[in-house]
Simulated assay, not measured.
Amino acid sequence: MKINQAEIVMSAAREAQFPQAPFPEIALSGRSNVGKSSFINKVLTRKNLARTSQKPGKTQTLNFYLINNRFHFVDVPGYGYAKVSKKEREAWGKLLEHYFQTREQLRGVVQLVDSRHEPTKDDVAMYNWFKHHEIPVIIIGTKADKIPKGKWQKHKKQINETLGVINSDTVILFSAETGLGKDDAWKAMTGLLFSSQPEPKTDNE
């Protein structure tokens, strides 16, 4: 996909700040420091649109990026970061749960995991939560350039088996350094963004 326009339009700390535009959305979820910002910058061909940091847990809001004036990327707070206070984690959890369960514009989630290692318990719990709520997921295995090419399929299989990935979901190995998996990621994301529109969600679902 050719990116003509990409900008952050809102950093939301509460529901009232969510953009009201009807654009379809893809949320990006992952463990802190897994490479969400690098993924965003690479697929959007922007160097510093999403700020990368060596300090995990920096994203403390839902950051809405408007792309080509057609859809949103929504970067959500990373999970599994122990140094964030219990009170902060609970507040994020309530906000995220509300977003994922009620946001009508949401078409699916990109869940990023570190392809070099077996997915963590937090990764598994998050994937299972998305599946419980019937949210489509694209799994992106980051930092694949750190793995020898001959072992890519082994690591991809490990992600599939550990998460228990269902057939309708996709696992893609990705590198923000080399661009590996970028085209496949766009194909999967546009498939969710511009496929038939889902039924509106209700608070009871």
Rank of each mutant, 00 (worst) to 15 (best):
A21M: 14
Y65K: 08
T45L: 10
S29A: 13
K36Y: 00
A21R: 15
G30K: 12
I26V: 09
A27M: 11
F64S: 09
F64D: 01
L66Q: 14
N48G: 04
K58N: 11
L66F: 04
R46P: 00
T45Y: 03
P22E: 14
P56T: 13
N41M: 05
I40T: 01
K58P: 00
R46E: 04
S29L: 10
T45F: 11
S32D: 02
Q60Y: 07
R46V: 01
G57L: 11
F39P: 00
Q54C: 01
T61I: 10
R51F: 06
F64Q: 10
P24W: 09
A50P: 03
A21E: 15
V43L: 10
K36D: 01
S29H: 06
R70T: 14
N48P: 00
Q17V: 11
N41P: 03
T45S: 14
G57Q: 09
T59L: 09
P24C: 14
F23G: 03
G35S: 05
A50V: 08
P22Q: 13
N41E: 09
T59Q: 04
T61G: 01
E25D: 06
K47D: 08
Q60R: 15
K58T: 13
K55Q: 12
L44V: 06
N68R: 15
A27S: 12
P22D: 15
K36Q: 02
T59D: 03
L62Q: 03
S53E: 05
N69E: 12
L49C: 09
R70M: 14
N41S: 04
T52R: 11
A21Q: 14
L28Q: 03
T61E: 12
K36H: 05
R31I: 04
S32Y: 10
N41D: 09
